[in-house]
Amino acid sequence: MLGVGAYRTRNRPARSEVLPVPIGQMTWTLTDHQGRLVRPSNWAGRPVMVFFGFTWCPDVCPTTLSDISLWLEELGADADRLIVALISVDPERDTPDVLAGYVSNFDPRIIGLTGPADEVAQAAADFRATYRRVDKEGGDYTMDHTAGVFLFHPDGRFASIIDFHEDRRFAVPKLRRTLS
C-alpha cells in the first residue's frame, strides 16, 4: 500500500510531497465530541480513517460524512474496530458540544475532534493536511481545507487517501484492504 502512496506522490507533487507520518509518530492532543482527550497512542493497533473539515461547511463536509456513513454501513461489523474521526479545522466555532450535535447526524462510529489552534495545526502537520481561513463580507468566514480521507493500517502506517472526487465504488475495497 505504501507503493500506492509513492505513486500518488510522483503524479501529484503539489499535493503530497510528503506522506502523513505513521500514527505512532504523531504528537497532537485533541478533545473528542464527548469532551475526552484523545492522543495518537489511543489509536494503537487499530485501523484509522481521518477527514479534515468543519461544521459550518455546507457542501463538502456533509457530503463526505454521508459517504463515509454509507461505507461504514456497507462494511457493517467489519468496520467496528475502525477509528473514524473528523478533525475540525475551525476550532474557534467547533467546540466539543458543537461537534457532538453535528456528528450525531451521521454513523455513530464517527467521532469529532477539536482542540486549541496549535494542536489542530500539529494534527494537520502530522497528516500533511492544509487549511486556511477565508474571510467573507460581514465578518463571516469559511475554511479551505484538504478534502481527502486518510486511511491508516492497524500498525499505524499510512495506507492511502480516498480523494473527494474519486469514484466512490473504489472506496469500500480500499477500506477493506486497510482493515485487514
Binding site: 460581514g138 479551505d144 481545507h145 484538504t146 480523494d163
Partner: peptide, 17 residues
C-alpha cells in the same frame, strides 16, 4: 438573507468554495 451561488473546487486535494 444572503443566498449566493458557489462552486466547490478541489485543487491539489484542497477544497475551496
Amino acid at each position: 438573507g444572503m443566498p449566493m451561488l458557489h462552486e466547490t473546487v478541489v485543487q491539489d486535494g484542497i477544497a475551496s468554495m
